[in-house]
Design a protein around this nucleic acid. Structure first.
Lengths: 221, 221, 221, 221
DNA sequence: CATGAATGAGGTTTCATTCAT
DNA sequence: TATGAATGAAACCTCATTCAT
């Protein structure tokens, strides 16, 4: 089971990544949110290497000092932004998975692909900017934790498929999830002919269904 | 040899990306290669943000001044290293594709997956380091060009499949290629259970075959 | 009570050194003292360079704003703390001197050394921390004033020595006082073998008596 | 010569205090020396808290970058400057002590006091500036090492005194050394009447001789 | 009055790049 | 041609101080 090799991630209350102060007043919350948006904008326009704390503060409309009151350093800031994004993604996936329990496998795949592509394209720019950042940040733990959440949700759902059962469910889960990532990212990065964008959803469904069909067997009463 | 990473320079509208000089003596060739290796090592141990020209020069065993005689700036250096890597990848793919012409589709997939995974895992570290760098460098043009080369080779090969024919060949090509990337990268980044590494090749074959089977029709004599 | 660190304010040409307000309620007096203690603690644990007004406020248990209501700036705060310390020292010395009037010289020296070492070792940490701070603060005026007070007290006492009289009393006074400082500070700073700590008082007495014996003559009736 | 301020580096387990590069060319040596002088000047005019690396570089006539090529950070720079000063002091003391072996005790004291006061007043400003800095730097180890060197030299000399012998030589040594420091520092800091400056040497001799006379016995043939 | 979020000048340090030797 | 010391713009981050609530 997958939770085995990730089982200690949640023990990592990596204090060094903790934001400095948790704002409780409405204004502060707004500020922090504005900082998040500003960070994403700068990330997009200048790239990770070109992102400076001064710029983020400027675009947020606050002073550097204020920025540093909420995030003890640049690293933590980026980490927090990435975390918010991944969190939303994972929540979206968990939601569809929960709602698709007990349905036929093909339906499950359709729902999941739909949710996945939606989530990605809803905030294309955000995603694009962050995937670049994620690599340089040592955010592998965070990314790992998130994909585990998604795999677990997927796993739990597929185990309830009305019509099919799997030999190696975790393996299938892993493949489906990561197979969706490749084409989606390629499309977002602009690495393919534009007419593909429209076709993406359908092709992803075909891709996943084709695979799952081969690694599962009909469920007998 | 320098022509390796020079081979596509003519595509570059931006002359500033061209290395400053083309050394011809055997000793210099060695030096340039040493610079590449050093760059990769530093990239791996310190990340893109932590890579400094001084460090690269040091590890190469030359002075910064000398480094700057071969590469007018850091950007060009990284670009060149990335280009060499991508070129090797593309060449490997082109080779298998050429050799698999006219074979049955399933065989083609097996060969291509084999070559792809081999190429990736042969230089895992190199690949890992460079994919991170690629995002920050404005290397999308370069990356795009390379994947196009690969798609073309794939396309040309699949068109000759002995047993099947495709409705939308470019689309299928795009999907197959990018579908392979997702799981492979996930495994390399450590984002999956270790036992998956061994299973990767087989699963990729299943994934691609499952998909292609659904988007192609039997070829009638 | 505030008059403690206020007692010499009138000497200050520089009005900007005056604390902003003189709190009269019992609660406020407590606060000011707490501020002093907090300052000393921070000074000890972080050094002068590491002392921040926010930290002092925090350790005092008030907000920075409140701190600034009592001390218009950092400099004044430190000045006040130093002043309190020096004042206590001077008062201790003045007390022994007053009590030793008219005694034989050797007795005087014994008493003074005793008081001096007591005062220093009673608040070792405080003294240590403040001597460091004193140098950076332009507190030379304050320090000068205090040592003058002590010299005067000493002078007045020695003039009444039952058995001896001096050629140059101010000079002798200066030497005695500063001679005690050297070894004492050296011991406190840990710059000598530990067994010396115990011997300090005796050695200081010997040192001063030896000196005074040579610069004084027997008093004839 | 550079080996001067490098001579005790080997005692330092703390590698972090090591200068970054040991200049070998004449120009670099000059640069480093200029940096030392500049540091002292800035220390004097602005105090330790007011000393900035930018200022030091400016006054040295080099860029900040150059400064940081020789000293990895501010702390190391200050440490180096202090070390050079203390080293000169210790060497001066060691020299007189060596030359005074086997002389009568009173002569020894005269020589040592002379050398001590000379060394201090030769570079009054330097000394003044550094004593302030020494406290904030965690240079107690360095200071301790230096005074031990001086105590040892003094000890070795006094053991050969032609006319007197001591019960507890280390204790006497410690007292003599630290007793000289008090009045000297007081005079330098301006904490005494100006006419004392001239009298200092004589008074120090009296002070030390008076003390040593009491803690030693005549040496019998 | 107390609070503590906001400010922003300014300090430390890095590193791509140049150029005298 | 190779070297590596020098440069200095620019990044990160701190902290004394203010002021709206």
């Amino acid at each position: 089971m997958l939770h085995v090799w990730h089982s200690h991630m949640n023990h990592l209350a990596d204090r060094s990544m903790a934001p400095r102060k948790t704002p409780r007043q409405a204004r502060s919350v707004l500020t922090v949110d504005a900082v998040f948006e500003a960070t994403l904008q700068v990330l997009l326009s200048h790239g990770l290497a070109g992102l400076t704390t001064t710029q983020v503060a400027e675009r947020t409309g606050v002073s550097v000092g204020t920025l540093y009151q909420y995030f003890p350093n640049k690293q933590v800031l980026l980490h927090a932004v990435l975390e918010r994004h991944l969190n939303r993604l994972a929540q979206a996936m968990e939601a569809v998975c929960r709602q698709s329990h007990r349905q036929p496998l093909d339906r499950m795949v359709e729902n999941v692909v739909q949710a996945f592509v939606d989530a990605k394209t809803a905030r294309v720019e955000e995603a694009r900017a962050l995937y670049r950042a994620a690599a340089e940040l040592d955010a592998s733990a965070l990314v790992g934790r998130t994909s585990e959440r998604m795999r677990e949700a997927l796993c739990a759902m597929m185990a309830t498929a009305a019509d099919r059962c799997f030999e190696d469910l975790p393996l299938a889960t892993f493949m489906v999830l990561s197979a969706m990532v490749g084409p989606t990212r390629a499309v977002l990065e602009g690495g393919g002919p534009p007419e593909i964008v429209a076709a993406l959803r359908g092709e992803l469904v075909t891709l996943c269904q084709g695979y799952l069909d081969r690694v599962s067997a009909a469920r007998t009463a």
